[in-house]
Amino acid sequence: MKLYENVVIGNFLYTLGFSIGSKSQGNQTLSVVNLLQQTPEDKRLADALLQFQGTVKLIEFKNRAGSLKKEKDKHARLVKILTNNAEFTHVSREIHWYIETNPYKKKCVNKIVPYLDAFDEVASVHTLESMVDEISNEAFLEHPKVSLDECQAYLKLIASHQGGKKSGSSETTGGLLVALNGTEVTYLQYTDILDLRLTAKQFSEKVKTQEQSLMKLYQEQEKKHELERTIERPGLSR
């Protein structure tokens, strides 16, 4: 039996969304869920980057039956990075996680530990269920355990040292910010997934600005089309 990583990721994110939705109690919830697998950020960061009001999580998903050589090389680079930047070790252990699946015939055993412990002989800190529950609880913290500024600095630090982009490339990977407000869902795109400074007020202002820009564009297009129709049918304009 082979349990592909994307199957685990899909179900994990689905369950996390359900858990957060059930705990939101109809209040507005801002979420950023970036599935980075097979994007330029996969090699620099991990498979998934999650951001909520009260927490940030960077998660790598692996199947124990697959080849782990590239991941072990990536892990070794991270250890080296943090050896020279020890002040970020506590940030790493809080937000950067490794989820390894090891499927058997009747059940799926998982190793879920901070990424720094990924290849050490240590016991799993979580099950998939408890990991989802912890993240959904932390999502609503008014004061995150690790500040967004520290999280952003950590992500930029490891992204700049892990490679994965062509030399001199200015390409950035964009993302979507999702706002849940009762039964209403609103999306807002942004240009760089490493930007973690968006607040609810900024989000509302950006949505309003985006809606106004779209409305203005629509009105200009309608005026243009009306003018074109008038030119094509000059007899009707008299």
Rank of each mutant, 00 (worst) to 15 (best):
M1P: 08
L3C: 00
E5C: 00
V8E: 05
I9V: 10
N11D: 15
S22Q: 11
K23P: 06
G26V: 02
N27D: 10
Q28L: 09
L35K: 10
L35V: 10
E41C: 01
D42Y: 00
K43P: 08
A46S: 14
A48T: 12
L50S: 02
F52R: 01
Q53D: 10
Q53P: 03
T55Y: 01
L58C: 03
G66H: 13
G66L: 09
L68I: 07
K70D: 12
D73V: 06
D73K: 10
K74W: 01
H75E: 04
A76T: 08
R77V: 13
R77A: 02
L82H: 00
N84W: 09
N84C: 08
N85C: 05
E87G: 07
E87C: 06
F88S: 06
S92V: 03
S92D: 09
E94C: 07
W97D: 02
I99G: 00
E100Y: 02
N102W: 07
Y104M: 11
K105S: 13
K107M: 12
C108M: 14
N110F: 12
K111E: 00
I112C: 05
P114W: 00
A118W: 03
F119H: 07
F119A: 05
V122H: 12
S124V: 03
T127E: 02
L128I: 12
L128H: 06
E129L: 09
E129H: 14
M131Q: 09
M131T: 03
D133R: 12
I135T: 03
I135V: 07
L141N: 15
E142W: 07
E142L: 13
H143L: 14
H143A: 13
K145V: 11
V146L: 05
V146A: 02
L148I: 12
L148V: 08
Q152P: 01
Q152Y: 04
A153T: 03
Y154N: 00
K156W: 01
K156D: 12
I158T: 01
A159H: 08
A159E: 01
E171D: 05
E171C: 01
T172N: 09
T173H: 06
G174A: 04
G175A: 04
L177S: 10
L177C: 10
V178A: 07
V178R: 06
A179K: 13
L180K: 15
E184Y: 06
V185K: 11
T186A: 06
Y187R: 03
T191F: 09
T191N: 14
I193S: 00
I193D: 03
I193F: 00
L194R: 03
L198D: 04
L198A: 01
L198M: 15
L198K: 11
A200I: 12
A200M: 15
K201S: 10
Q202I: 11
F203I: 04
S204Q: 09
T209Q: 15
S213W: 00
S213D: 14
M215G: 09
K216P: 00
L217D: 15
L217I: 13
Q219V: 10
Q219F: 11
Q219E: 15
E220F: 11
Q221K: 15
K223A: 14
H225R: 15
T230N: 14
E232V: 05
E232T: 09
R233W: 06
R233H: 14
P234Q: 06
P234T: 06
